[in-house]
Amino acid sequence: MSDLPSVPGPVAPRWLYLHGFASGPDSAKGVAVARHFEARGHHVARLNLRVPSMEQLRLSAMLETVRAALGGKEDRAVLFGSSLGGLTAARIAAEDARVCGLVLLAPAFHVVPQLRKRMGEAAWGHWKTSGWIETDDFAEKRKVRIHSGFIEDAEAVDARTGGWPDVRVPTLLIHGKADDTCDIRYSRQWAEGRRHVRMVEVEDGHELTASLPRILAESEEFLRPWGA
Rank of each mutant, 00 (worst) to 15 (best):
A61E: 15
R214T: 14
G193Q: 02
D204N: 07
A178M: 01
A94H: 02
V197Y: 06
A89M: 02
H196L: 09
A12S: 13
L79F: 05
A22V: 11
P213R: 04
A122W: 02
F138R: 11
E95A: 15
T88A: 12
K143A: 12
P5R: 12
E121K: 09
G149E: 10
G101Q: 08
E155S: 05
G71A: 09
A210F: 03
L59V: 13
S6I: 08
M54D: 10
R35W: 05
P52K: 00
Y17T: 05
A61R: 14
A106H: 06
G125V: 04
K141E: 15
V103N: 03
G162N: 11
W15Y: 10
S23M: 01
G125P: 03
A28M: 07
A210K: 14
L84T: 15
P52A: 01
P165M: 01
P52W: 00
G149M: 02
D153P: 07
G20D: 05
R118C: 07
G41W: 08
V202S: 04
H36P: 08
R160S: 10
L104W: 07
W164T: 10
E221S: 13
A217I: 02
W132R: 15
V11G: 06
R142Y: 01
T171D: 03
R198K: 14
P13H: 07
R142D: 00
R198H: 12
E220S: 12
H126R: 15
E220Q: 15
C182A: 15
C100K: 10
R50D: 15
L57T: 05
W132S: 12
A93S: 12
A34Q: 14
G125D: 11
K29I: 03
V33T: 12
V157T: 05
V169F: 00
A22R: 15
R188I: 08
E74R: 14
V51A: 10
R91M: 12
F222G: 04
D180Q: 14
A228W: 12
S2A: 05
R168N: 13
A34P: 12
